[in-house]
Amino acid sequence: MPSLIDLRRRIRSVKNTQQITKAMKMVAAAKLRRAQERVIAARPFANSYTKLLANIVAAAAGDERVSSHPLLAVRPENRIRLILITADRGYAGAFNANLIRGAQSFLEERKAARLELEAVGRKGRDFFKRRHVPLSGEHIGIVDKAPFAEADKIAKSAMARFASQELDAVYLLYNEFRSVISQKLTIKRILPVPVPDAQLTSDYIYEQPPDQLLSNLLPHYVSIMVYAAMLESAAAEQAARMVAMDAATSNAAKMIDSLTLHLNRVRQASITKEIIEVVSGAAALE
C-alpha cells in the first residue's frame, strides 16, 4: 500500500500536469481563432481566382496551345513528389500520426515510381529523415505564420522540376479543417494542374488572348492551392491540439479525483488503526 506522502506527491504532480495541459488548451484556442481568420481572409481571392480560371479555360477550350501547356502535361507517373504538411510540434492528438501513416501508405502504393518528399513541418521531416526517404526540401517553422511567399516558393520549386520533366506528378497531403472536432486527411494532386470545371459564365473582352492569359495564371493557381492547404493545416493543427489538451485536462481531473479518494481511505484507515491501538493499549492496562 502506498504511503500517504507518496499519494500526496502523486496528486501534486498530476495537478501540475493538468495546469500545463489547461494552459496549452487555452493557447491552442487563441491560435485556432487566428488561424481560422486567416483561412476566411484567404477565401475571397481563392474563390474568385478559381472562377476566373474556369472561365478562361472554357474560353480557351480546344486551343492546342493550352492543352500543350507544360504545367498541364499528363505523363505516366514515374517520378512523384509528395508535399507533406505536418505540424512543427506534437501534443495534438493523432494529428501528425495520421498524416505520417497517410504518407507511408501513399509511398507504399507507389513503390514502383521514384519518390521524393517535400516536408513542410518538423514532425514529418523528422520521421521520414530517420527512415531515409529522399527529401527534396524541408520547411520548418513556417506553418504557424504561413506567409504566401513561402507557399509560392514551395510551389515554384515543384513547378520548375515538373516543367523540365524531372517530375511527372506532384501531390499534396495535409489535414483539412472540417470543424473543431474533425480533420480530414486530404490528398490532392496539384501537378499536372487539375483545371477547374469549365463553364462560360460571362462573355469577356480579353486584353490578352485566353491561351496566353491562362499560361500566365496557372503558376499562381498552383501557389494558391499550396497556400490554401497550409492555412487549412494550421487551423486543423490548432483544433486537434485544443481537443487533445481538453481531453488531457479532464483525464487529469478524473485521476486527481480517484487519487484523492484513495488518499482519504488510506488516511482514514491509518487513523482507525491508531485509535484501535490506543483503545486496546488502554484496555490492556485495566
Binding site: D203, Y204, I205, Y206, E207, Q208, N216
Partner: peptide, 19 residues
C-alpha cells in the same frame, strides 16, 4: 495597371479580363 498598359474604368464598363 494591366500587363498591356494602364486602363481606366468607370461604372458600366463592358466585361473584361486582363492580366
Amino acid at each position: 495597371p494591366c500587363a498591356s498598359g494602364q486602363i481606366g474604368v468607370l461604372a458600366g464598363h463592358a466585361p473584361l479580363l486582363s492580366e
